[in-house]
């Protein structure tokens, strides 16, 4: 014999069920966002062959290059990128994204492209008038972590906002740069 639950008892049950569902979805999504790989591989990313000067002209938006950022949406990589941005003295020219000696990274003007592959090749290969080439100096996975961080800046999320509940780098004694 089946007995139907009275409505008063069913409501809390329903609520609890919904809560469990929401929490489990959050935990799965959250885990992926927070996931960190401690052991990264170093071989360089193969970008499609093109010469830096040929199709990129200042002021003209180039077509995005078909390479995906392997750390897309990873809070951990973003936080690591933020640390490396200071460690490798990107802040020395770009400051904290506001620009100064180098161009601003928070605005919408990207003369050499704002897609992940363009950012990658800007860091690795350098650009005319000041941006040095970091090929061989910054391991490939760290370049992608920097790309993740720069992309977050460009999206206008604000640098002061922590990329996740666990702010990884916590450089209290560092990063005291204006702007």
């Amino acid at each position: 014999m089946r007995r139907r639950l009275p409505r008063a008892a069913a409501m809390p049950l329903l609520f609890a069920g919904a809560l469990v569902l929401v929490l489990s979805v959050f935990s799965i999504v959250g885990c992926q966002k927070m996931q960190r790989r401690l052991h990264e591989s170093t071989p360089a990313t193969a970008l499609p062959a093109w010469s830096p000067g040929s199709q990129l002209h200042a002021g003209v938006q180039p077509t995005p290059l078909p390479v995906k950022n392997p750390y897309e949406g990873s809070s951990y990589a973003m936080s690591e990128g933020q640390r490396l941005f200071e460690w490798y003295n990107c802040a020395g020219c770009h400051f904290r994204g506001g620009g100064g000696i180098g161009p601003a990274l928070m605005d919408r003007v990207w003369i050499y492209g704002d897609d992940p592959a363009s950012l990658y090749s800007t860091i690795v290969g350098g650009r005319p008038n000041g941006m040095p080439a970091w090929r061989g100096k910054i391991p490939d996975y760290q370049v992608w972590q920097l790309v993740t961080y720069v992309e977050a800046m460009r999206a206008g999320r604000g640098i002061a906002a922590p990329p996740g509940p666990r702010q990884e780098h916590l450089q209290a004694g560092e990063g005291k740069i204006s702007r």
């Binding site: 401690l38 052991h39 990264e40 591989s41 170093t42 071989p43 391991p139 996975y141 760290q142």
Partner: peptide, 14 residues
């Protein structure tokens, strides 16, 4: 170094 002290700040060097 990541095999010896996982998570440390030094990248592996090939």
């Amino acid at each position: 170094s990541q095999r010896i002290k996982p998570g440390n700040r030094m990248p592996p060097n090939v």
